[in-house]
Amino acid sequence: MEFPVAGVTVNPFLLAGIGFLVGVLGGFFGVGGGFIAGPLMFWTGVPMHFVVGTDLAHMTGKSIVAARRHRALGHVDFKLGLVMVVGTILGIEGGAQIIEALKVLGAVDVAIGLAYTLILLAISLFTAWESLRALRMIRKDRLAVQEALGFEGIARRVHSIALPPRLSFPASGIVSVSVWAVLGVGFLTGLLSGALGVGGGFVRMPMLVYLLGVPTHIAVGTDLFEVVISAGFGTLTHAIKGNVDIIMALVMQTGAALGAQIGATSTRFFAGPRIRLFFSALPLVGAVMVLARLLSAGMFH
């Protein structure tokens, strides 16, 4: 099928298949899946700036459904989400401007591809390290105690930052924290979202837990609320800059909707750090795919 906006011809079933795979993985591991969809789309021959914008568009629709379900469960801290989104939007615009500057320089594919590869490698290594550590802790039967002591310390230091103004977030159990810490988390993930076309959930969720001390289930729901806003804003700003092929995003979404349902249902049969250990291989596959595509297209010459 020809996609005249992006100027490429790609099999729509391949795109729906990518959506399905990302949907299953997203539903199963609780992430948006942009870090897998991006490399796969790039691998099919979609130009990198269309990968970034179109992936954000497909993620918006997928996350709306998930966020609605979490809201019903009371897992969304709207106050925290709304404060954080200010930083997120500034970060997204910054990321989109970086793409525009790289387009002018003609280096968008190489620069974004390399940044993608490095971030994917970092996620893979961190997840492998964290899950192996958790497995060791489970064997010693002291996981809960170790996690509480280690991460409370970091969150306590962030909460003690004295920069005014300070706000409380009762839904997340935060008595008082500097607004700048919340905005900083939003800005960093927004920058990633705008520049790489990812929702940023795989970075924001751990940051909410480890840096701000938000309980995990609230962090997941609030993160999805953020993804809807950030990916929605990212879709608009990238579409206005001509980086989104809506038909391509709609095709991918057909597969993602079914995949997300199946992935979420499958979590019932698997659980624990072993899943996170399996998961750590996924970003590695994504990194190899981006590098292979860059090398095969001769982009380093």
Binding site: A57, T60, G61, I64, T235, L236, I246, L250, Q253, A257
Partner: peptide, 13 residues
């Protein structure tokens, strides 16, 4: 585009 994505998301769900 954003409208279509949101509408399709709700319909597919």
């Amino acid at each position: 585009g954003l409208g279509l994505i949101v509408a399709q998301g709700v319909l597919l769900d």
